[in-house]
Nucleic acid binder design. Sequence first.
DNA 1: ACAGTATATTAAAATATACTAATATAAACT
DNA 2: AGTTTATATTAGTATATTTTAATATACTGT
Lengths: 115, 115
Amino acid sequence: MIRSEPQYPISRIAEIFKVLGDQNRLHILSLISNQELCVCEITSIIGMSQSNASQHLAKLRSAGLVKERRSAQWIYYSLNQEALPLIKEVLKMLPDVSHELERLKTQPDRPKCDT
Amino acid sequence: MIRSEPQYPISRIAEIFKVLGDQNRLHILSLISNQELCVCEITSIIGMSQSNASQHLAKLRSAGLVKERRSAQWIYYSLNQEALPLIKEVLKMLPDVSHELERLKTQPDRPKCDT
DNA sequence: ACAGTATATTAAAATATACTAATATAAACT
DNA sequence: AGTTTATATTAGTATATTTTAATATACTGT
């Protein structure tokens, strides 16, 4: 039997899918699939508490799916290149959320992180 | 933005990944990826209780990942064709388990379902 | 009909997860 | 230095999941 893709222990794959098995985390991945976003933008779009978003991001990060970059007081999250092939496959299945990113720019209580 | 693959609501994708986010269920999927197996074979290979296996199989089934076929007193599980494209991608990431299927044939307390 | 085998279902316990509220840390601005 | 803003962490609670043990159902063979 020939397998072309990298193998991982079942424990690692289960860990990844467990992290992916949550609507909010899938939503976050969709949002940052095209552009990095800071936590306040993510919470603003999804409408979840800052603490909750932070904890979901921590799970995505510890599973190696996203990475963070600090700039001033903001921390920007983006997809981790190492997991990109997998994430791309997942994102293909998910509905487009670009309209949510558009709306972010025009909403009145828009976060100030990218002004 | 062009997307070639079928889209599903986030809730559905999360449901699928939640089901995939468990070592035992991934193991079961690997085992039945090449051939259908009955519950007693699965429990024998994985070394889990009959009840536990049955409940994991129920989750895989209700998520549409596997299907069942009854033959005499045995119920054989196999991959559900409808979810096959997704499952194939998942299986590519998992280690090969064919040696476990080989061992099943020679072990002393081998189940009698395929004699 | 009855006993045996295979599987499913139910109940209960243990563990894990998601969420909120509160607190801590870190940087920026005055 | 003190205040504000952004984020992380911690603690507590509610809910969900996994597992085991016990029971029920379905089929086979006698």
